[in-house]
């Protein structure tokens, strides 16, 4: 049985307005809503809700990083599909813009009292924080 297990994973990351990754990889780590989990080839089928955080995948010894928030992951033995609400590659992140978004969200959070707006601002803050985190970490690593 063991030899019938796949040795690679086909990883697809799509967000509502574009497709970000469509590659064959060796390992993926996904930010699930209950915590991070790693996926190696031959994983049992899994359907997971995603939280906000950093997703990385490994091709050989090469690591790639993505910032992402919310959505779903479908894991099959030879395939991982990520349907992200928001996702961005680490090298695409504009640090200055993320920083500005963070400041803006913080200001809004401190001034507005209406629930709806606060919720949106909180999400914006969360997204900008992840972006900053992923981008700075990717910089340190490289």
């Amino acid at each position: 049985m063991a030899d019938s297990l796949p040795t690679k994973i086909q990883l697809q990351v799509v967000s509502a307005d574009r497709s970000l990754v469509n590659e064959t990889v060796d390992e993926v780590q996904i930010p699930g809503s209950e915590g991070y989990f790693g996926v190696l080839p031959g994983h049992t089928p899994l359907l997971a809700l995603l939280g906000a955080g950093e997703l990385w995948y490994r091709q050989g010894s090469e690591f790639h990083y993505l910032a992402m928030a919310f959505g779903f992951a479908e894991v099959q033995p030879d395939r991982v599909t990520i349907l992200a609400e928001f996702a961005e590659r680490a090298d695409e992140i504009d640090l200055a813009r993320a920083e500005a978004a963070k400041v803006r969200a913080e200001n809004r959070l401190s001034s507005v009292t209406v629930d709806m707006d606060a919720e949106r601002a909180r999400l914006a803050l969360l997204k900008s924080l992840i972006r900053l985190q992923v981008a700075t970490r990717a910089k340190i690593r490289s």
Binding site: G32, S33, E34, T44, P45, L46, L47, A48, L49, F72
Partner: peptide, 18 residues
């Protein structure tokens, strides 16, 4: 392939809800 049921994280009801 399709006979194996998924693992769900969190519970399936919660996932379907979203």
């Amino acid at each position: 392939d399709s006979q194996v049921d998924y693992l769900y994280e969190p519970a399936p009801e919660k996932i379907f809800e979203q």
